[in-house]
Simulated assay, not measured.
Amino acid sequence: MTSHWHFNPAYADREPCAVFRSIAQVFSLNGELVTTDPESEVLRVRAGQTLYYVKRYTIGRRKLARRWFGLRDVFGPQRAVKEWQNLLRFRAWGIPTASLVAYGQERRFGRFVRAALVTEALPDTVDLAELAIVRDPRLSDRTWVRHVSTQVAAYARIMHRDGFVHNDLKWRNLLVDNGPRPIVYLIDCPNGAHWLRPFLDYRIVKDLACLDKVAKHVLTRTQRLRFYLDYLGHDRLTDVDKRQLRKVLKFFTGRE
């Protein structure tokens, strides 16, 4: 068995040092179950006065065909690995995200066995999807919306200009804090990846369409257009911009 485990030295003198020091310790933890699927589960765990999210991956009960008849466990990139790589990538780009406390995986004879990553909870935050569901009054505050929209547009522009797409750029994966000028955090990105054209163009449209899927129900047309112009870095739409925008607006037609 080969184990690769990385512990953030910034937490060496804090409670997580004793709780998340090894992958074996992480898999022995009990906590509040947040979500689960055949391959992974997310627990909310308290260490000292701070909450942490523990995401644990196993081989699970995937169908053989979906596992590439076993080859995926040898050659295929694991979602856990991509998730912590992408969180580190966001940090490098200056995009606010959850702090990685620890991450790593175990392999046996080259095959994936299990993996985990631990992130510190972002205090006093809520995802944008929840705000939309409850019709939070902040979404009626044009100044607040403008401040949030500008940040999200900047994050999307940074990713896409590097040839990277989130692949699940939905309101539920965007957290905001409670400040009058809130900070927007981008989280949960196990499917994000770099793409080459022409596949990149399609994926970019999908990212933008995922954002607009909720925005069209809670924001004005002017606010949505302003977001798109901020994303492009343009004062007005060009013919190329208009063609892309039409694709974004039509992306989920017949799929909802």
Score class of each variant (00 low, 15 high):
R67Q: 14
R62F: 09
K82M: 13
A116T: 07
R108W: 14
N86E: 10
T97L: 10
F112R: 03
A80Y: 08
S99V: 15
E83W: 01
Y103D: 01
L117T: 07
N86S: 14
Q105K: 12
Y103P: 08
Q85T: 11
R79I: 06
K82A: 13
D73K: 09
Q105V: 09
E106P: 05
R67T: 15
A116W: 02
R79S: 12
L71F: 13
Y53S: 01
R91C: 07
A92S: 14
L100T: 04
A80I: 10
F90I: 10
L87K: 03
R79D: 07
R79F: 08
F112G: 01
R56S: 00
L87D: 01
E106D: 11
A80P: 04
R56V: 01
W84I: 06
R91D: 14
P96N: 10
A80C: 15
A65E: 15
R61F: 10
W84N: 00
G70H: 06
V81M: 11
G70C: 08
R89M: 12
R107L: 10
F75W: 07
W84T: 02
Y103S: 05
R114E: 03
R108K: 13
V118M: 05
G110L: 05
A116S: 06
L87S: 06
L64T: 13
Q78D: 10
V81H: 13
E106M: 05
R66Q: 15
N86K: 02
A65W: 14
R91G: 10
I95V: 11
R61L: 13
A80G: 14
E106G: 09
A115S: 00
E83G: 03
F112D: 04
A115E: 02
L64F: 13
G110V: 03
R72I: 02
R56K: 07
Y53M: 02
D73Q: 12
I59V: 15
L117R: 01
R62T: 14
L100Q: 02
F90D: 03
L117W: 01
R89P: 00
G76C: 11
I95K: 06
Q105I: 01
F112P: 02
L64D: 11
G110T: 03
G76N: 10
W68K: 11
A92R: 13
V54F: 04
L87Y: 01
I59W: 04
A116P: 01
S99E: 15
V101R: 02
Q78Y: 08
R108D: 14
R61P: 00
I95Y: 05
F90L: 15
R79Y: 09
G60N: 08
V101F: 05
S99I: 12
Y53Q: 06
A98Y: 07
I95E: 00
Q105H: 14
K63E: 14
K63H: 12
R107Y: 07
I59T: 15
R108P: 03
Y57S: 04
P96A: 08
R91E: 14
W84V: 04
L100N: 02
